[in-house]
């Protein structure tokens, strides 16, 4: 039985190439795979960042992320979805999140990729805290633009 939806939450890094090959193996016949990798930036608002901490709600996270991935699978009839999201302490340049959507054609693959990352930002229980070079830290504020991006998929 080939799994349509694969979700993994954890502290360990991921290999996008390896995940891509695994998704290809799971979804023979896909005409295209859309993908997005989120990476920790080195600055926020002009201030240098030394690290980012991703807090989450362990009992809820995997279920919430899986529900988003299954929603994408249903809406676009995807042949396969992979979502990997890291938690814990990450430094600039490290990968945070991977989403991949395999479909028969490019339009659903690309649309589903956008949908997945938009909904992950606003509907899955993750919270980012940025640690600055001067020793201070601040929780990342939810952006109205992110809410608007998520809302366009309703």
């Amino acid at each position: 039985m080939r799994e349509r939806v694969v979700v993994r939450i954890g502290t360990v890094d991921f290999d996008p190439g390896a995940e891509f090959r695994l998704l290809c193996e799971r979804t023979g016949g896909a005409g295209g795979i859309g993908s997005f990798v989120g990476i920790v930036r080195g600055e926020a608002g002009g201030r240098a960042i030394t690290a980012m901490t991703l807090e989450h709600y362990p009992a809820m996270t995997e279920r919430a992320v899986r529900a988003i991935a299954e929603e994408a699978q249903r809406r676009w009839g995807l042949l396969g979805v992979t979502v990997v999201h890291r938690v814990g302490r990450l430094v600039p340049g490290e990968q945070i999140v991977l989403v991949m959507a395999a479909a028969a054609h490019r339009a659903p693959a690309l649309a589903a990729t956008s949908f997945l990352i938009d909904w992950l930002k606003t509907k899955a229980p993750f919270w980012k805290k940025e640690h600055f070079a001067d020793g201070t830290a601040a929780w990342v504020a939810a952006e109205a633009a992110d809410e608007a991006a998520a809302a366009r998929w309703r």
């Binding site: 989450h56 509907k123 899955a124 229980p125 993750f126 992110d146």
Partner: peptide
């Protein structure tokens, strides 16, 4: 019951 700020994942 869990309470939290708006989520900021992705």
């Amino acid at each position: 019951v869990a309470f939290f700020p708006p989520m900021t994942g992705g």
